[in-house]
Simulated assay, not measured.
Amino acid sequence: MNPQNFSLEKLARLVQGECVGQHDLQLAGLASLEHAAPQHLAFVNAEKYIDSAEQSKAGALIVTAALKEQIKSKQNFIVVANPYLAFAILTHVFEKKHTKTGIESTAQIDASAIISDSAYIGHYAVIGEHCVVGDETVIQSHCKIDDGVEIGKQCLIDSHVVLTGQCKLGDRVRIHANTVVGGEGFGFAPYQGKWHRIAQLGSVRIGNDVRIGSNCSIDRGALDDTILEDGVILDNLVQIAHNVKVGANTAMAAKCGIAGSTTIGKNCIFAGAVGVVGHINIADNVTVTGMSMVTKSISEAGSYSSGTPMLESLHWKRAAVRFKQLADVPLTQLMKKLDHMQSQVESLESTFKLRK
Results as ranks from 00 to 15, higher is better:
residue 2 N to Y: 00
residue 7 S to L: 10
residue 10 K to P: 02
residue 17 G to W: 11
residue 17 G to C: 07
residue 21 G to Q: 12
residue 22 Q to T: 15
residue 23 H to M: 13
residue 23 H to S: 15
residue 33 L to Y: 03
residue 34 E to F: 00
residue 36 A to H: 04
residue 36 A to K: 01
residue 42 A to E: 05
residue 44 V to L: 14
residue 51 D to N: 12
residue 54 E to K: 01
residue 55 Q to I: 03
residue 61 L to Y: 07
residue 65 A to G: 03
residue 65 A to Y: 01
residue 68 K to I: 00
residue 68 K to A: 04
residue 74 K to Y: 02
residue 85 L to M: 14
residue 85 L to E: 11
residue 86 A to P: 10
residue 87 F to S: 01
residue 93 V to P: 07
residue 94 F to S: 09
residue 99 T to M: 11
residue 100 K to S: 11
residue 102 G to T: 04
residue 106 T to G: 06
residue 106 T to S: 15
residue 109 I to Y: 02
residue 114 I to K: 14
residue 116 S to L: 08
residue 117 D to C: 09
residue 121 I to K: 08
residue 127 I to W: 08
residue 140 Q to C: 13
residue 149 V to Y: 02
residue 151 I to C: 03
residue 156 L to Y: 14
residue 158 D to C: 12
residue 160 H to Y: 13
residue 160 H to T: 02
residue 163 L to N: 02
residue 171 D to H: 15
residue 172 R to A: 13
residue 175 I to T: 09
residue 175 I to W: 12
residue 178 N to R: 13
residue 179 T to D: 05
residue 182 G to I: 10
residue 182 G to V: 10
residue 185 G to I: 09
residue 187 G to I: 10
residue 187 G to H: 08
residue 187 G to M: 09
residue 188 F to C: 05
residue 188 F to G: 07
residue 189 A to N: 11
residue 191 Y to I: 08
residue 191 Y to N: 11
residue 199 A to Q: 11
residue 199 A to W: 02
residue 203 S to P: 09
residue 204 V to D: 04
residue 206 I to Q: 04
residue 206 I to K: 06
residue 206 I to G: 07
residue 208 N to A: 09
residue 210 V to F: 13
residue 211 R to T: 15
residue 213 G to S: 03
residue 216 C to V: 01
residue 220 R to A: 00
residue 222 A to N: 00
residue 224 D to E: 15
residue 229 E to W: 04
residue 240 I to H: 08
residue 240 I to S: 10
residue 242 H to D: 07
residue 246 V to P: 01
residue 249 N to I: 00
residue 253 A to H: 03
residue 258 I to H: 00
residue 259 A to C: 10
residue 260 G to R: 02
residue 262 T to Q: 06
residue 268 C to W: 01
residue 275 G to K: 14
residue 277 V to A: 02
residue 279 H to G: 08
residue 283 A to P: 03
residue 283 A to N: 15
residue 283 A to Q: 07
residue 286 V to A: 05
residue 290 G to I: 01
residue 291 M to L: 08
residue 291 M to R: 13
residue 294 V to A: 03
residue 295 T to C: 05
residue 295 T to K: 05
residue 296 K to F: 03
residue 298 I to D: 11
residue 305 S to T: 15
residue 305 S to G: 06
residue 309 P to E: 12
residue 311 L to E: 12
residue 311 L to W: 04
residue 311 L to C: 06
residue 312 E to A: 10
residue 314 L to K: 13
residue 322 R to Y: 08
residue 324 K to I: 05
residue 329 V to R: 12
residue 330 P to A: 11
residue 330 P to H: 07
residue 331 L to G: 06
residue 332 T to D: 13
residue 333 Q to T: 15
residue 335 M to T: 13
residue 339 D to G: 00
residue 340 H to S: 11
residue 345 V to P: 01
residue 346 E to G: 00
residue 346 E to V: 05
residue 347 S to K: 11
residue 347 S to L: 11
residue 350 S to C: 03
residue 352 F to M: 14
residue 352 F to W: 02
residue 355 R to D: 14
